[in-house]
Design a binder for these strands. Structure first.
Lengths: 184, 184
DNA sequence: CTGAGGTAGTCAACTAGTTGAATAGGTGCC
DNA sequence: GGCACCTATTCAACTAGTTGACTACCTCAG
């Protein structure tokens, strides 16, 4: 039941329709969870039945109506309860790691390309996170921000995303260096 | 079909029974994939039916017999093919990130504890990876190793695991610092 | 000689996540 | 005026992953 809480947490950033949530999850501020639209719509239905969120139809001109959901008090309580529950260790599932482990029987060139693609992707994400970071700080120092800001949740997950992408970038560079050393 | 390939890749490290594989996945050299024993036994059966691996019963004294699996030529070919396939972006699913994002409605103390637990876990993993790293290098410099070593797959995934855990550690430290700044 | 814990595996039932397509109106481009 | 792409949602079918219990035999400590 973790997607459930990821959805609730995402709604802390403001009410959203399924479609909007899907984009939030996709471009996700600090890539804190991933989910397909179908999963989200299903989860939203269940959450509404459980009265942890409440939907209302918003009529729009020039585009289809949408159902916008907001957290209920029960939803907030559920989120609070979730933060006190036991945390399970994160599950790492990265195709690239598997492929690299299979390098000895694998295709070196294909792996170089895959690795470069990862590098680019992570650099792009990192750049985005860095911009968001600047926006959040808004001129203040890290410490000022940490002390003063009203809400700190987004900031801390953003730091997580940045650390993760930085790790990806330096790892990808190291791997490419090694592959070049041995290639050719 | 990614667990499938993770199992095949794990068998590159040497033949193993389901039970042994489970441990390999658990203490997994560079936490490159995670899976429960039940998943493994199921997958091994399917892989054997597909003739990508071959099992044989090894009779043991003082303990139950076991079925040890080894890669077939077809299995190696399948792994090779996998390395040329398109890589999908890694899926991040970490409860802690969700909980931190919900910090504003969550329980600050519980989160501090969860964060400390993560820090310890990551430090322990990191220490283990560092030992493995030393063992692999065996006195050689990184560059010597990268040039000379026969097999480089394990090394590269190990680097990935290390980068990931280092990111975790520095992130956890930063979060705890911030939480202390604002707490009390 | 009992019970905890390791080795080795199986079965059943469940929950979570993915894929692909269908519907239906809107905008903007060339 | 036709085609591609965006908003917004739903349905159906599938694959992957988790949980918990159960069998069986072994070793070792107290």
């Amino acid at each position: 039941m973790a997607l459930r809480h990821a959805v609730l947490a995402a709604l802390l950033d403001g009410d959203a329709s399924g479609y909007e949530l899907a984009k939030r999850f996709d471009v996700s501020v600090a890539n804190f969870w991933s989910a397909t639209p179908q999963q989200l719509y299903r989860e939203l239905e269940q959450l509404e039945r459980a009265e942890l969120i409440q939907g209302r139809v918003v009529e729009q001109e020039r585009r289809p109506n949408k159902r916008v959901f907001s957290l209920t008090a029960a939803g907030r309580a559920e989120l609070h309860a979730f933060t006190t529950e036991q945390t399970r260790p994160p599950a790492m599932r990265d195709d690239l790691l598997v492929k690299l482990r299979a390098l000895d029987v694998g295709d070196r060139e294909a792996l170089c390309e895959a690795m470069s693609a990862r590098l680019e992707l992570s650099e792009a994400k990192l750049a985005r996170y860095d911009r968001l970071h600047e926006d959040l700080l808004d001129g203040r120092s890290e410490e000022e921000y940490a002390r003063e800001a009203e809400s700190i949740g987004v900031y801390l997950t953003l730091m997580g995303g940045r650390a993760y992408e930085q790790a990806n970038v330096s790892w990808a560079r190291a791997v490419l260096r090694v592959l070049e050393l041995r290639g050719s």
